[in-house]
């Protein structure tokens, strides 16, 4: 039987480059086969950032409707995914004076930063991608005057309008809420760890 008509019982290829966790400068002593570099790995696309609808329409007069739709969508995403704070002070400490608004969920008030702009990708498609963008005016923040996404990715200076982003930049981000308490999982492990020799290293799987 030749190797081509042999049905393998093992994974036919594994992308070793992606499995590496550190990069040693020494070359590997063994030549390891089947390193596949996927054609789209590291592929980036262009995205545009606008401060508001007007900014978008000024730049792209033919796209006014898309500017508006994407802005509305981004505003809704901002409410869903922006970081949330218990007090206006905490929020303003991160984002700057007068940069925060009330986000009402249920019960007491929560504060979130204002959407500072929005990022649009695939502008020529019927439905462009969008994502809300935030920035900080606070001198205590490492993100000061930079574009950041809801999950904290730093896209650099807010003076930039054109960004090179990974396609995943437009994936739906997790919603963000206010956490009331933590530590409600893990008590079984604390109880069983006090028994015998379980210590660092071994896990709780089986």
């Amino acid at each position: 039987m030749t190797s081509s008509d042999q049905k393998l019982k093992r994974s036919s290829s594994i992308n070793l480059a992606k499995m590496r966790k550190s990069f040693s400068f020494k070359p590997l002593a063994v030549g390891v086969a089947t390193i596949l570099v996927s054609a789209c790995s590291g592929g980036r696309e262009e995205a545009l950032v606008f401060k508001n609808v007007e900014d978008c329409v000024n730049q792209l007069p033919d796209m006014a409707a898309k500017c508006q739709t994407a802005y509305q969508g981004a505003l809704e995403e901002a409410a869903r995914t922006a970081p949330k704070y218990n007090s206006k002070n905490d929020c303003e400490y991160e984002f700057g004076t007068n940069q925060c608004v009330v986000y009402k969920e249920s019960g007491s008030s929560i504060f979130m930063p204002l959407m500072a702009g929005y990022m649009i990708g695939n502008m020529l498609a019927p439905r462009p991608y969008y994502q809300p963008m935030f920035t900080s005016y606070s001198r205590y923040s490492p993100y000061r005057y930079n574009w950041i996404s809801a999950d904290g990715y730093d896209y650099g200076d807010t003076k930039k309008r054109r960004l090179k982003v990974k396609p995943s930049a437009f994936d739906k981000k997790p919603a963000v809420t206010r956490t009331i308490s933590r530590g409600g999982f893990g008590s079984s492990v604390r109880a069983k760890s006090s028994w015998g020799s379980r210590s660092s290293g071994k896990g709780w799987g089986g």
């Binding site: 969920e105 997790p174 963000v176 809420t177 956490t179 933590r182 492990v189």
Partner: peptide, 22 residues
């Protein structure tokens, strides 16, 4: 981490960045 999972307003579970664990 399991021990860090939080309970968010509205009864959703959250991570350390207060992101809802969907």
């Amino acid at each position: 981490f399991v021990e860090d999972i939080g309970l968010g307003q509205g009864g959703e579970l959250t991570d350390l960045q207060d992101q809802v664990i969907s």
